[in-house]
Lab assay of single mutants.
Amino acid sequence: NQESVVAAVLIPINTALTVGMMTTRVVSPTGIPAEDIPRLISMQVNQVVPMGTTLMPDMVKGYAP
């Protein structure tokens, strides 16, 4: 099972992602793959992401799977 990126904290809208904001977990449905965390650093979320929420591609500005 592939791990997906999950919010480790509440991430406010338009916040640039940092390593500490993200964790990984096997979830269903799957979100952004864990191995993409290095690509996500400094990208901004386009909505509020509650802690424990799986990051989906459409939540991150400029992210393309």
Rank of each mutant, 00 (worst) to 15 (best):
V48H: 06
I13F: 10
T18K: 06
Q2N: 15
L17P: 02
M51T: 13
Q47V: 12
N46C: 05
Q44Y: 10
D58N: 14
I37Q: 12
T30H: 15
V60D: 01
L55I: 15
V45L: 11
P50G: 09
I32M: 04
V6D: 00
N46W: 06
R25G: 14
Q2F: 10
V48C: 04
V45W: 01
L10H: 09
Q47W: 04
Q47R: 12
S42R: 05
V5D: 01
V48N: 11
T15K: 09
M22T: 03
A8E: 07
M59R: 02
A34N: 11
T54C: 03
I41Q: 14
A8M: 06
E3A: 05
M56V: 13
T53S: 08
L40E: 00
T23N: 11
V48P: 14
K61N: 11
I13D: 14
D36S: 12
Y63P: 09
V49I: 10
V45E: 01
N46S: 11
M21V: 05
R25P: 01
G52V: 02
I13N: 14
P33R: 07
M43E: 05
M21E: 03
L17M: 11
I41C: 04
R25S: 11
Q44K: 09
G62F: 06
N1C: 06
I41Y: 09
M59T: 11
A7G: 13
P38F: 05
T24N: 10
R39M: 11
M59Q: 07
L10G: 13
S28T: 11
V60N: 01
I37P: 01
V49Y: 01
M56G: 14
S4I: 02
G31F: 02
Q44S: 11
S28W: 03
A16G: 12
V6N: 02
S4P: 00
L17C: 01
T53Y: 13
M51C: 04
T15W: 05
T23F: 13
S42F: 05
A8W: 03
D36N: 14
M56P: 00
L40V: 10
D58R: 07
V6Y: 03
A34F: 04
I41L: 15
N14T: 13
S28V: 07
V48M: 11
L10C: 04
V6R: 02
A16W: 08
M59L: 11
A34R: 05
A64Q: 07
P57T: 14
K61L: 08
L10Y: 07
V6Q: 07
V26I: 07
